[in-house]
């Protein structure tokens, strides 16, 4: 796809998400105010504030005027107010974002590197016994949802073996600083990141492997062998380098699916990121928070896609032209 078409797709996606977000509570049967603010708000708010809010969101006006008001507040960066947590949604989300970024980022790096190397090696050794076995287990695991892998990890490595903490991102009420803090963070990060990267691994591995199989029968690989390159050079410098292209082109999708997977993983490990927050919002029926999270995730994924495209264009000289 050309760059401009992609840009259009992203803008349209954003619009679609905003419209979905706007319409969902308003199409629900019953009082839209309840669907927008949640029951918590209905209980705590006084009648005047309620009226005020209705007026502010034009809930008593036609749908398109409401949409205008909705867009208006969005552009001011106002994601609403969580009455369950008693804080603006935007600041609640900002508080958990770093943890989500840490988890998703480390899992992505891990799964991409590992998936790529395993994919290259598995393509190179296609058909051998060990390769078949690894491929088989990877395909098996790839079918499992992230929370299931998380649960299994939690049960064995944390609950039973007690190698890692059971949840959270930091040991509560400890005043670690410097290296010990870092160690604590990594210790809490390890299991969720491993579980998440395991779910992401298979896709990158299979993609790299399929691409390797095509590339290994390419003429330039033959040339590389004839040039007297060592097998490692043929594998990575030539075939591998080309197999990286589809991986980089899919980076955006990978970010999306890793983020989606992290929502579940965080719930399992009570890791204080977006997923954990989403879980709380769902339990509390905290709709403003829910909407804010949804919007943030969508925007993040769209931005990640955009950046990933830039990276792919950087890596593949053939795409730079466009």
């Amino acid at each position: 796809m050309k760059q401009r078409e992609k840009l259009f797709t992203y803008v349209a996606t954003l619009l679609f998400i905003i419209i979905l977000n706007f319409l969902l509570p308003r199409l629900m049967p019953g009082d839209p105010f309840l669907a927008i603010y949640g029951e918590e708000a209905a209980l705590t708010l006084s009648a005047e504030t309620k009226q005020e809010l209705i007026a502010q969101m034009s809930l008593d006006k036609p749908l398109w005027i409401q949409f205008g008001a909705y867009l208006h507040s969005l552009f001011r960066g106002d994601l609403g107010y969580s009455y369950a947590l008693n804080a603006p949604v935007s600041s609640v989300i900002a508080g958990v974002l770093p943890w989500s970024a840490l988890l998703v980022g480390s899992a992505l790096i891990l799964s991409t590197l590992l998936g790529f190397v395993l994919g290259v090696e598995s393509g190179w050794r296609k058909g051998s016994r060990s390769e078949k076995l690894i491929l088989f287990s990877i395909i098996g695991i790839s079918g499992l949802p992230s929370f299931l892998i998380g649960v299994i990890f939690l049960l064995f490595f944390a609950a039973q073996l007690d190698w890692f903490p059971l949840g959270g991102a930091l040991t509560p009420y400890s005043d670690f600083t410097g290296l010990t803090l870092l160690q604590d963070i990594l210790k809490h990060l390890f299991l969720p990141a491993m579980a998440l990267s395991l779910t992401q691994l298979s896709e990158i591995l299979l993609l790299t492997r399929a691409s390797m199989l095509t590339n290994l029968s390419s003429p330039y690989v033959h040339t590389a062998a004839a040039k007297g390159l060592k097998p490692l050079g043929i594998r990575y410098r030539h075939a591998g380098r080309n197999s990286l292209l589809p991986v980089s082109a899919r980076l955006g999708v990978s970010v999306g699916s890793a983020l989606a997977g992290s929502l579940f993983i965080e719930i399992v490990f009570a890791y204080p990121g977006m997923g954990d927050l989403l879980h709380q919002a769902l339990l509390n029926r905290d709709y403003p928070l829910l909407q804010g999270i949804f919007l943030t995730i969508a925007v993040t994924i769209i931005l990640a896609n955009f950046l990933a495209d830039k990276i792919a264009w950087r890596i593949d000289p053939r795409m730079r032209e466009e």
């Binding site: 003429p219 330039y220 590389a224 380098r241 080309n242 890596i315 593949d316 000289p317």
Partner: peptide
């Protein structure tokens, strides 16, 4: 032939 040379180098 196509791909006689490595396309990314």
């Amino acid at each position: 032939v196509p791909n006689a040379l490595n396309p990314v180098l």
